[in-house]
Structure formats: C-alpha cells, structure tokens
Amino acid sequence: MKRHGEVVGLLAVYRNLDPASRALVDQHVLECPACAARQTAYAQMDQALAGLVDPRPGAALPRSLDGILHGRSSRWVPARPVPQQVRVAPKVLVAAAVLALIVVSFWIVLRVLPPTGPVLAETPSVTPTSTSLAAALTPPSAVAPDAASSAARHLASIPTPIATRGLAPLVVVAAMP
C-alpha cells in the first residue's frame, strides 16, 4: 500500500525517473489496475498538452528586442526631482499643537497679569537697557569713572520681576510658524 502511494507520485513525473524508480513503477503497474489506468491517462494528457498549438503573438509584440526598447524609451518621461515629503505621524502633530497652545496661553497669561514676582536687588539685569546700551556704546574715555559706577548702581536698583526673565525664548518659539 505504501508502494502504491509512492508510485502515484512517481507516475506524475514518469518521464524524468531514474532507471531504478522506473522499474519500481513498471513492476507496480503490472499488479495495480488503478495505477495502470492512471499511467495511461497521464500519457494521453502529456500527448494532448504537447500537441497544443501555441497562439501566435500579434503585432503589439515587437519582433525584436530593439522594438521593445524603443517602446520603453518613447514611454520614457524625464525624471523630475520628487519633492521630499516629510511624513509625520498624526499623534506627533497633535502633541506639537497642544504644546504650542500651552506655551502661547502661558505667555498670554503672563502678559495680562501684573508682575508680582520678587525683586532682584543683587544681580544686575542681563537684559541690556537703554542706559546700559548707551554706556556700552560710549567710548571709555568719554565716560567718567564715577558716572559709569553710578550707572551700574542705577541698573542694579532697577526692579526686575523674576516672572519676566527668560520668557523671550518662549515667545520666539510661540511665534514660530
């Protein structure tokens, strides 16, 4: 029975069998009418398939490779630079929008509320004021030493709300498109 199953598989490729396998099949076919019938059917099938008349290609298929290459070149379109599209996930876009909204609203709140932060008395303001700018632009020889020191003292005495310090970068980020 095992041999029958094996022979059924071998019958499908009988033409390509090695002599030993072919002898096995031939021996089995003599004893098994089902395999004998199958062998006959397969032989007829091969004959019918081998005898099929091939359809001939029409004029649309060029007779030479040059014709195909010509066809390809006539369909050829000059390559245009493909605009590079940056693909951003929707979640990232939403997160960026929310962040921008928070930053802008925070900035608006700070602008509306009066400055109530502690006064910085010790450190002079980092932001150049009109006075300090004028002092910086004035040649050292033109400024008297006592005048410079009084300007520095004046700068130190200007109250700077802590809440307004360091907001410039945030404003710049919020104003970005």
Binding site: D54, P55, R56, A60, L61, I68
Partner: peptide, 23 residues
C-alpha cells in the same frame, strides 16, 4: 518570444495582457 508569449497567455488568459507582460 513566441513560446514565452504563449506561456504567459495561457497563464493570464488574455491576448493583449499577455503581449504587454511578455514585453
């Protein structure tokens, strides 16, 4: 050319398509 066309034609079942695919 002809044999490959016939083969492709018998796989896809359409003459025009087979000619395109052979090319």
């Amino acid at each position: 050319r002809s044999a490959v066309f016939a083969y492709v034609y018998r796989l896809v079942g359409n003459r025009e398509w087979a000619e395109e695919l052979t090319q």
